[in-house]
Computed example of a mutant assay.
Amino acid sequence: MSTDFQQARAALGLRLRELREAHPEGRLTGSQLAERLGWSHSKISKLETGKQTATAADLQQWAEATGRPGAAAELQARLAGLESHTRSWRRQLAAGHRSVQDAITAEHARTTVLRIWENCLVAGMVQTAEYARHVFDRHATLMRSPRDTEDAVRARVQRQEGLYDGSKRYHIIMWEAALHALVCPPSVLAAQLDRLAGVIGLDTVELGIVPFNTPLKIHPGNSFWLYDERLVVAEDWHAELWIDDPAGIATYIRVWDTLRESAVYDADAHRIITRARRALGAP
């Protein structure tokens, strides 16, 4: 979780405490507010100290319980600003994966040059439908989110039409581990590797592989996407980070450039993909 996010959440907590202590009928203690809301006292404490993120419903109830229902809009605006950069999977996936795919498709449409780093999965822009289906299913199980797999797969595959748009460029680097990760049956992975081999010939795509046996100038950390030089989207287990400040973007560009120095391309990349396919024992 970013320092900026922590600071914003702590500031929201201080505002919640102000509302509790400024109740029109007299200061409420944390225990009194917890009783009014039917919450645990620990929840009140965690929200006020910035150790837990409130939901929009939490903020509405807080404003009403502290006698300031009109403050709900202000609190929810603070929450929206806080989550514009740190988008928790719990909230994003409340309605399933399709809405997440639609949000990122809008960014793809605005982008001319997309740089992708993937450390453990085949990049979504070049996934087969069957491979994507297994990825979405496993993620939905982990996150306990609604399973709208087919809608999500269709959205992801439709986005790949950009690969054939001559006005766009895709620079994709993957760690070799992504070619071996059995997040799907071996037959599905074999077909996915065939798809990767075919992508190497596209004019709009530069596909690089960082081999297992190459010296690394930096460890292969979390996956991220660079949309032109205006936005970075990075994934973590709890959330997506949407980074648009110049210093943050500059850091990811340096990471990208460093990883790229260890990647191989064209025939060398094709040989690594072929080697991974043979390791599956596929014909």
Rank of each mutant, 00 (worst) to 15 (best):
M1I: 09
T3M: 12
T3H: 10
D4L: 14
F5C: 08
R9N: 14
E18D: 15
E18Q: 15
L19I: 08
L19E: 07
L19S: 06
A22Q: 15
P24D: 11
Q32F: 03
Q32S: 12
E35S: 12
E35I: 07
L37Q: 08
W39K: 05
W39C: 05
K43I: 08
I44A: 02
I44K: 01
L47E: 05
T49G: 09
G50E: 06
K51V: 07
K51S: 13
Q52I: 05
T53V: 15
A54N: 10
A54Y: 06
A57F: 09
Q61K: 14
A63N: 08
E64F: 04
G67K: 08
G70L: 11
E74T: 15
L75D: 04
L75S: 04
Q76C: 12
Q76P: 07
R91C: 05
R91A: 13
A94Q: 14
H97R: 09
R98G: 03
R98H: 13
A103Y: 09
T105Q: 11
A106S: 11
E107Y: 15
H108L: 14
T112H: 14
T112G: 12
T112L: 11
E118M: 08
L121I: 09
V122C: 02
A123Q: 03
M125Q: 13
M125P: 02
T128N: 02
A129R: 04
A129E: 09
A129V: 06
Y131M: 02
V135C: 07
F136E: 02
D137K: 13
D137R: 15
A140T: 15
T141V: 14
S145K: 06
S145F: 07
S145H: 07
R147H: 15
D148G: 07
D148T: 07
D148P: 05
E150H: 08
D151Q: 15
R156W: 04
R156F: 06
G162V: 03
D165P: 03
H171E: 12
H171R: 09
I172E: 00
W175I: 00
W175P: 00
W175Y: 10
A177I: 05
L179N: 01
L179K: 01
L179E: 02
H180Y: 14
L182D: 06
V183T: 13
P186Y: 12
S187K: 13
D194W: 04
D194N: 12
L196N: 00
G198W: 00
L202K: 03
T204P: 04
G208N: 00
G208L: 00
V210R: 00
P211V: 00
T214V: 12
P215E: 11
H219M: 11
P220C: 10
P220R: 07
S223G: 14
S223F: 03
F224S: 02
W225T: 07
L226C: 06
L226R: 04
Y227L: 05
Y227W: 10
E229N: 15
R230K: 14
L231K: 10
V232P: 03
D236F: 10
W237C: 08
A239G: 05
L241E: 05
I243Y: 02
G248W: 04
A250K: 10
I253R: 13
R254C: 08
V255G: 01
A263Y: 01
A267P: 01
D268W: 03
A269C: 14
A269F: 00
I273H: 00
R278P: 02
A282H: 10
